[in-house]
Amino acid sequence: MNKDVKVIKVKNLCKKFGDFTANNNLSFEVSKGEIFGFLGANGAGKTTAIKILCGLSYPTSGEISVAGFDVYKQREQLKRNIGYMSQKFSLYEDLTVFENIRFYGGIYGLSKEVIHRKADDLLKKLDLQHARNKRISSLPLGWKQKLAFSVAIFHDPEIVFLDEPTGGVDPVTRRQFWDLIYEASREGITIFVTTHYMDEAEYCDRVSIMVDGKIEALDTPAKLKEDFNAVDMDQVFLALARTATNVE
């Protein structure tokens, strides 16, 4: 992690839908290579904030830059420099492993040669060479998950946004998945991750917890546990979430 380089800068982010305030004056920064946990109960405003950071929706007010690009004016460049993976499965089941890689590489504008070279490296790394021309639908879930993550960072983004990436996956696979996240982080990719699993929150460098549209806590897991006098992140989370009024 490089603390001097801030790849996400959010200052006074507000997002309103009519009378409802989904994001109330959020301010935070994320360093290059950091694994940043973005926590909060359903309805706390996480998804709204992620959509803004990914350039999918405009904030009502605030200064926000992602990978050095302004979310109001430089969406195109911003989008080129981020990756995204959601809880819903994001590879095409009816395409083969390689076709998926080629498609995603293609929409990020990578050349044919680059795609072929990187695809070979990737398949070797994941030990999936034999499955190159198999359809995604024939792979076990754990492999799909790893592949989906690898595809999300295939174009070497500055930041990858992971929206509950490990939903519905068994603990062993989750652990393996986090190994991939660590590796990406070591390579300098910033990880912005939301999760419902509090053990995963412990894996993050820093964690923010949102309640009712505001960030109520932001620090390293160790520091948070100390502040809230808690044994684990679960207790921290519950202590904060209990104060919530906007619950879906």
Partner: peptide
């Protein structure tokens, strides 16, 4: 339904 639309929207494709 598959969630791939989100991925497409996040990508540089307009």
């Amino acid at each position: 339904e598959l969630g791939t639309m989100e991925i497409l929207l996040v990508s540089p494709l307009n």
